[in-house]
Design a protein around this nucleic acid. Sequence first.
DNA 1: CAAGTCATGTAAGAAGTTACATGATTCT
DNA 2: AGAATCATGTAACTTCTTACATGACTTG
Lengths: 201, 201
Amino acid sequence: MGLIKLDYGVLAILSQSDMSGYDITNRLSNFWKTTHSRVYPVLSKLEKLGYVEHELVEQVNKPDKKIYHITEPGIGALRNWLIKDTQPSIKKDESLLKLISVHVLESDVIIDLLKERMKLVKKEEEFVKKVVENTKAFSNGVVTDTRSNLFNIHLLTQNILSHAQLELQWCEWAVELYRQKTADNFFDIKFNPCKNKEHKN
Amino acid sequence: MGLIKLDYGVLAILSQSDMSGYDITNRLSNFWKTTHSRVYPVLSKLEKLGYVEHELVEQVNKPDKKIYHITEPGIGALRNWLIKDTQPSIKKDESLLKLISVHVLESDVIIDLLKERMKLVKKEEEFVKKVVENTKAFSNGVVTDTRSNLFNIHLLTQNILSHAQLELQWCEWAVELYRQKTADNFFDIKFNPCKNKEHKN
DNA sequence: CAAGTCATGTAAGAAGTTACATGATTCT
DNA sequence: AGAATCATGTAACTTCTTACATGACTTG
């Protein structure tokens, strides 16, 4: 029974600090789509393997919780995973899937669709910005310090943020092209976001 | 029994041109992770629903094939899907998941990891460039014509390409930061790929 | 007074992966 | 000679989603 990416994701979060399954789910789901109903069984599995352990913490006015911590064998498993081959990333983006067949719609409906996508991406952008703030609050604002063990989280959020911003620029570019669609024709129009407003023809 | 994204993906490909299940898999998997063992049952399902039909084409020196085409009800289902609410995109990127816990490694090993990622992204970039070429070949080079029904595929590939290029820039930025890690400290260093080499401190 | 937060889990069903199965031809 | 291409499918297994289940407290 080998470990899957989700298992390593849980170990990765626990390598940052000790946490309850509830908190692990909240943190991890900022970077990896998952739910508590998946994380709890994963924790049981990892505990059986000796990679994590927990202490029961009794609380007043709140349900009791289990605070998990990673063990030495857990850190070992994490290290082995980190240095071994990485699988290519998987992106399942319904907006882009839809794009394949938008030719069955009128141009103005396509533009509406792209604007809907922009709203979605803006929400994602806002979400990441909140993650940035939460991470800063959690570590008293020293995230961007290269010595902080949350420095990598800073790199991660910057990555996600910049992709969101690129996506918005792409949407604007696409909207503009569909606007001009009825009027004229363009050849070899490349999306070149980093050479601002200088599109090669 | 409602349709899932993969079902619509198959319909979307068939809205471009009639194709065998084998070809559908090859095309669709450029934009949506799937395999032929998933696509064949999907086609059976879609045929039962009346959204696609097929003709058997006998071949010499090759196995016989079923050429599928989308029906009017199929186009209708596609249209309804296009205009209805879109789910947020899901990205499962093992490299970024690894990043959460890289603090358990030494800086030089982290840099190796980021360089490995760059290789992976470069491969993805090459792959998209091939898709661009194949699409051009398929349509006699008129992809970038706004009137072409492959124009959207052009937009799609430009999207993927630009994300790959952004990813490479991010990797370079991250490598540079880890290189300076042992030497010094930096505060509020933001990844700003579109204002080239002007990182705020 | 309804919804959300904190906190743990189970279970059924849907979706995805990987291997199996076949077989002639073509490329390296 | 072995791998890849074309072409279809099935089956076993793994993973993921969604709903169920509980319950006190807090916020709007």
